[in-house]
Design a binder for these strands. Structure first.
Ligand code: DGT
Ligand code: MG
Ligand code: MG
Ligand code: ZN
Length: 587
DNA sequence: GCCGTTTTCGGCCCGACTGTTTTCAGTCG
């Protein structure tokens, strides 16, 4: 029996093979096969070791005999011959060079071979001293561009949080939308899909051909544009002062729907759509959906009607797929059967859960937070300050809890007297202690109307132990919601590696919800667990985890993740009316 | 390397921009 492996190990193993293959100049389709296999393993929601023990990996899509045997071999021996051979051929250090924009596998391998260098520092040196420019197919500009790209890479991170990207996008939208000739304008790319982190910001404009050039000029000349990375007739890219890349694509109004679909992606969704089209003797690109010519190219003289994205899905026998679902992560199965869920919307939300006040580490009083909720049209606020062990965050002693309840009671009476239809719910975000117990005696916990159990300490516990803590909390009769289950901080700190598929099964069984923490630094539970969660009938809650008033406006990002998860309003606790929520909490 | 109610071999998404080239490869979206 081979020793158990972690899913993540296999994923990075396959990714490394694929990447090194490309660098080694292998057939790209072979490399793509390894990438695809990695994606399949990554999306597995049961134990990979079962497939390894039973030798059934080839049941999975994109995994054939060859890759399956590589994985079995790895599980047995800890190494794979094909990878060892590739490592001999291509130094691992070259993988870092792929982060330099404008540098792909061909250039990297060529420079590495011709100049016998592998380190980034050496590459910089050889760009400066003219060695790179003297290579065939390269020149002065090549070397300059490499140096510039390395500088960008070292100064700015490749991806950013979604709130930062949203702010950049809104600024550019504002500055472009009233320009002469703009007929339509939209955010596209990962931001439109509400991905948890954003690489660059993609904008699409519909305009007549005569206006395109002046719009491009306007875009590349905007305040805050530090550098123009490229400028053509239909698309341009710039870098902002903050180091974010913004791409603009301009198409004529007739092409706008197809272009919006293309530019929204994801790449994997696009590839799947285009393959589907070919399978039906049609060709899909950013200009539309077309019948085929005899040599299976797009016949631009024979377009199908595409007045909206929806038309394109229809022609391909699919229901409309909302942008958030376009990740090639199961949406085609849903859309083919007409089973795309009616996704939850921000306007479905009736109340706010998981908010901190000055009683613990929040910046605003209960009254201030409550009034901000009222202004935003919410019916209730589930106040959840930190519990007593969270000394670092001003966690509440039992005595303070009781004092807080008095303040809440007084505020609720005041709202009732004034005829304001708003209720503050007595809640707590209780630490899940190292042994899985909660942070107050059960009889006190029972007096709260809302208990969120979250891990804030012992973050380095091994996966199995962490899972046990989370499962124990989920099974605790007084716990309603498990908070930010992995504890990840996007772009900063990986979350714990507990098997969340098992937590989801367990929580569903005990009728405990798992939150989607809407803070753009967390967005945890991750949307990739949505399918599993829906299968298990898990409830969730979209929680701002707000420590100040601005934090309440993070709800939109949490809703994005809830939609990516495939959740309807029926899956979300705080889409319930207060009466229904109370019924659920009191179960 | 993977896959198949049009196939077990021959496809695998498709177009824009750049730089170095003299007709296109490489990279990116
Ligand atoms: N058909 C096709 N479309 C692509 C390809 N690469 C990118 N696109 C489309 C889909 C992408 O969502 C869109 C924008 O590209 P980006 O590189 O900005 O990717 P995206 O925004 O999805 O992710 P990001 O957060 O920017 O890394 O362009 C491709 O290889 N083929
Ligand atoms: Mg993008
Ligand atoms: Mg882009
Ligand atoms: Zn917390």
């Amino acid at each position: 029996m081979p020793k158990p492996v972690q899913k993540e190990e296999i994923v990075s193993l396959l990714e490394e093979i694929g990447t090194l293959m490309r660098l080694a100049g292998e057939n790209d389709f072979r490399a793509i096969a390894f990438d695809r296999a990695a994606r399949t393993i990554e999306s597995l929601d049961d134990d990979i070791n079962k497939y390894i023990d039973d030798h059934t990996l080839t049941d999975l899509k994109g995994i054939g005999k060859s890759i399956a045997n590589d994985v079995y071999e790895y599980a047995e021996t800890g190494s794979v011959p094909v990878l060892e051979k590739l490592r001999d051929q291509v130094p691992d250090a070259l993988i870092a060079w792929l982060g330099i924009s404008g540098m792909g596998p061909k250039k990297i391998y060529k420079i590495h071979k011709a100049l016998d260098i592998t380190e980034l520092s050496e590459l910089k040196e050889k760009c400066r001293d003219g060695s790179v420019a003297s290579l065939a197919g390269m020149g002065e500009k090549t070397a300059e561009k490499i140096l510039k790209s390395i500088a960008w890479m070292e100064e700015f991170s490749a991806r950013c949080h979604i709130d930062e990207a949203t702010a950049v996008a809104e600024l550019f939208l504002e500055k472009m939308k009233n320009a002469d000739g703009v007929k339509e304008i939209s955010v596209a790319g990962s931001l439109r899909r509400a991905l948890e982190t954003i690489g660059d910001i993609d904008l699409l404009i519909a305009a007549d051909g005569k206006d395109a050039a002046s719009l491009m000029e306007r875009f590349t000349g905007l305040d805050g544009v530090m550098e123009v990375l490229g400028q053509g007739e239909t698309k341009s890219s710039v870098r902002t002062d903050e180091g974010r890349q913004v791409d603009l694509r301009i198409v004529s109004p007739a092409h706008y729907p197809a272009a919006l679909m293309y530019f929204t992606g994801s790449k994997e969704h696009n590839v799947a759509m285009r393959s589907l089209a070919r399978g039906k003797n049609m060709q899909l690109n950013e200009y539309g959906l077309f019948h085929q010519t005899d040599d299976k190219k797009a016949d631009f003289d024979r377009p199908l009607p595409t007045q909206s994205e929806n038309y394109i899905y229809r022609h391909l026998g699919l229901g409309f797929i909302p942008p958030e679902l376009r990740e090639d992560y199961g949406e085609f199965d849903l859309a083919a059967d007409g089973k795309v869920p009616e996704l939850v919307e921000l306007s479905d939300m009736r109340g706010i859960l998981h908010v901190h006040s000055t009683w613990s580490d929040g910046k605003k009083s209960i009254r201030e937070m409550a009034e901000a909720c009222i202004e935003r049209g919410y019916e209730y606020l589930g106040l959840t300050d930190h519990s007593q062990s969270a000394a670092y965050a001003g966690g509440l002693s039992i005595e303070r809890v009781k004092q807080q309840w008095e303040e809440i009671d007084a505020l609720n009476r005041e709202y009732a007297d004034k005829g304001i239809d708003f209720t503050i719910i007595k809640g707590i975000e209780s630490d899940i202690l190292a042994d899985g117990r909660l942070d107050y005696p059960d009889d006190l916990l029972a007096e709260f109307d809302l208990v969120i159990g979250s891990v804030h300490s012992g973050l380095d516990h091994p996966p199995e132990k962490m899972l046990n803590r989370l499962m124990e909390a989920a099974a605790h009769p007084q716990v309603h919601v498990v908070g930010h289950p992995t504890g990840r901080l996007l772009l900063r700190r990986d979350g714990n590696k507990a098997d969340l598929n098992r937590l989801i099964e367990h929580a569903s069984k005990h009728k405990t919800a798992i939150e989607i923490n809407a803070n753009p630094r967390r967005l945890d539970l991750d949307w990739r667990y949505g399918r599993k969660a829906r299968e298990c009938g898990l409830m969730s809650a979209v929680c701002p985890d707000a420590h100040d008033i601005k934090g309440l406006d993070h709800m939109r990002y949490g809703i994005g993740i809830a939609r990516k998860s495939g959740f309807t309003a029926g899956h979300i606790l705080n889409a319930k009316t207060l009466a229904d929520l109370k019924k659920w909490l009191g179960k």
